[in-house]
């Protein structure tokens, strides 16, 4: 059972205090978007064995959504950060690259 630190309230919350929200950094495609863009937005999800970016909500705490970078294979957590970001912060990218030299990047 994971522990993730909520970047808003600083609580090291265990998984039962959180709700998962799937892949992070998805871009919304609304009316006027192509079928392909909409399909990718709606259905295409990464499922990596390794570095992954996820949405979590501190639902039994401050109620805020946040994002987490972690390794799905070893459960190592590289960092959590606010949801109001369109791509992972540089310091977290650096940390991942240092620990996972073979990592291909988040895109």
């Amino acid at each position: 059972m994971l522990i993730l630190e909520c970047p808003y309230c600083g609580v090291k919350a265990e998984e039962t205090e959180l709700s998962p929200g799937g892949e992070a950094h998805l871009k919304r495609f609304g009316p006027g978007s192509s079928d392909e863009d909409f399909e990718n937005y709606m259905f295409a999800r990464k499922n990596p064995k390794g570095v992954h970016f996820e949405r979590w909500r501190h639902s039994y705490g401050c109620g805020k959504w946040f994002l987490a970078a972690r390794c799905t294979a070893t459960l190592e957590v590289f960092g959590t950060y606010p949801a109001q970001t369109t791509e992972p912060p540089a310091d977290i990218i650096d940390k991942i690259k240092a620990k996972r030299p073979d990592w291909k990047g988040y895109k």
Partner: peptide, 20 residues
């Protein structure tokens, strides 16, 4: 402040989230 509750007698003000 973050995660604190200020109590004075019967009254109090608590931090619930960054905007609550």
């Amino acid at each position: 402040k973050q995660r604190r509750i200020e109590v004075k007698g019967e009254k109090a003000a608590g931090w619930m989230s960054p905007d609550e």
